[in-house]
């Protein structure tokens, strides 16, 4: 069912031999994922910056010819897990700022009602499900890539994905957006 671990990067890798372009594209992808995950510009930028710092420090651990995107996402994931952990160790630091800015995060483009509902539905997901849905649906990672980077069996990825999609679907239906665009 799922394709090989290196499928995705090989496909894009074949198209370009310009390493810089490839890296830039992956970093753009990291930033989008971080924003979608944290829903806060500053936090997301911090997360990406921290991940890049670590990537620079660990550049030697990247094996030539392997999946660069998966390597970067794995680093970002680990950094995020550590950040969450250290925040949990300091419970006094209530994240008022981020909660507030989450409520007022300005959107650049005119948002359709459905887009707003989508964001709300994503926010309401348990984080483990949110991650899987974003990595698969937004970033287009392969299931086995997601399993490897989250460190869970692929079956777990699939069940989280399924639950996440059904939860979002129920939420969007409840909000009365029966006009949800059909995609051909």
């Amino acid at each position: 069912m799922a394709h090989g671990f290196r499928g995705a990067s090989n496909r894009s890798g074949a198209r370009l031999s310009n390493f810089g372009v490839e890296l830039e594209v992956h970093i753009a992808s990291l930033r989008r994922y971080a924003r979608a995950l944290l829903r806060n510009r500053t936090d997301a930028e911090d997360l990406v910056q921290e991940a890049l710092t670590r990537a620079v420090a660990r550049a030697d651990s990247f094996k030539a010819g392997t999946n660069l995107r998966a390597w970067l996402f794995t680093i970002l994931h680990n950094v995020h897990v550590n950040q969450v952990r250290s925040k949990a160790a300091r419970p006094d630091e209530v994240d008022v700022d981020s909660v507030e800015s989450r409520l007022v995060t300005p959107a650049r483009q005119e948002e359709r009602v459905e887009a707003r509902e989508m964001m709300r539905a994503i926010d309401d997901l348990p984080e483990e499900q949110r991650k899987v849905l974003l990595l698969v649906a937004l970033e287009g990672l392969k299931y086995d890539e997601v399993a490897e980077l989250l460190g869970v069996p692929i079956g777990t990825v699939m069940s989280r994905l399924s639950r996440a999609r059904e939860a979002v679907r129920a939420k969007l239906a409840n909000e009365g957006s029966t006009t949800l665009r059909r995609v051909k």
């Binding site: 989508m118 964001m119 649906a137 969007l172």
Partner: peptide
């Protein structure tokens, strides 16, 4: 699929 489209639209 619509969810995927919306995700891209938003982010």
């Amino acid at each position: 699929r619509a969810q995927t489209v919306l995700l891209h639209e938003v982010f």
